[in-house]
């Protein structure tokens, strides 16, 4: 089976600073893949390169069989890859409804009915958003903003949803609500690439996980196996590896 997303040898630099130093990664259709690793490991930079927010300094990104390395983020959305960025980035000065409609920006001209249908669908998924449709997004709590950001991403009708730091600043109670939603979306066929610093959550919901450190993939494997791997904990709490 060909991968939906495949990343080969991607490097990302900010000036002279190399944040990602040659990463290979793949997501198969329907797969739920996690990327974990300590802060500053280069996870977010990798996601930004995949989503077209920044251009990789080297390497290749393919989506759905076609090379997309040089495409910009709005073109990636049109191709079917949506990203929920770190820190949510909802449009705080616009209403929830407008935020959601903007999520359908690239489809609006050709498929307005579809956007409206999907808007209804995400409101079923996140009923709390429905109550606040005419509120400005800036008035939402962090958890609600994260729901909105996910919902906004879904309205572009992606085949791959990239989520960067789902748990950032969120209370465990909210996370217990969000992760099952992602699982059910995945079961319905959506491929998901999740970057998460709370490794225990990520390992519990994903099929496969990459562990990053210092801009490189340290190792990868089935999430269920990694959850028992002592190296994972080491990567977080900085304990010296045995050997």
């Amino acid at each position: 089976m060909t991968a939906l997303l495949s990343v080969e040898g991607v490097r990302v630099s900010y000036g002279r600073i190399e944040a990602v130093r040659g990463v290979d990664l793949a997501v198969a259709p329907g797969e739920f893949v996690g990327v974990i690793g300590s802060n500053g490991a280069g996870k977010s930079s990798l996601m930004r390169a995949i989503a077209g927010v920044l251009k990789p300094a080297a390497g290749r990104v393919s989506f759905d069989g076609a090379e997309v390395t040089r495409l910009k983020s709005h073109q990636m959305v049109a191709k079917g890859l949506a990203m929920v960025p770190e820190g949510r980035m909802v449009f705080a000065d616009q209403t929830l409804r407008d935020n959601l409609l903007l999520g359908g920006f690239s489809r609006m001209r050709t498929d307005r009915a579809g956007v409206m249908r999907d808007l209804e669908r995400v409101l079923v998924l996140f009923p709390r958003l429905r109550e606040r449709l005419d509120q400005e997004a800036g008035t939402l709590s962090g958890g609600e903003q994260q729901m909105l950001a996910i919902a906004r991403g879904l309205i572009s009708k992606p085949r791959l949803l990239v989520i960067d730091e789902l748990s950032l600043g969120l209370a465990p109670l909210i996370l217990d609500m969000l992760f099952p939603v992602l699982s059910s979306l995945n079961r319905e066929g959506l491929s998901i690439l999740l970057v998460e610093q709370m490794a225990s959550y990520a390992l519990a919901v994903t099929d496969r996980t990459y562990v990053m450190e210092n801009g490189r993939v340290l190792f990868e494997g089935r999430s269920a196996d990694l959850a028992r791997d002592p190296r994972v904990l080491d990567a977080y709490l900085g304990r010296r590896r045995a050997a």
Binding site: P172, M198, A199, S200
Partner: peptide, 30 residues
């Protein structure tokens, strides 16, 4: 601080302290 369960949870997520190798084994930290 490194052995504090609340710290481990903050970094790692809930349930980390049980499912994972004992984080309290901080003795090997130089």
């Amino acid at each position: 601080v490194q052995a504090d369960p609340r710290v481990i949870e903050a970094y790692f997520g809930r349930g980390a302290a049980q499912g994972m190798p004992a984080a309290a084994a901080h003795a090997d930290v130089p």
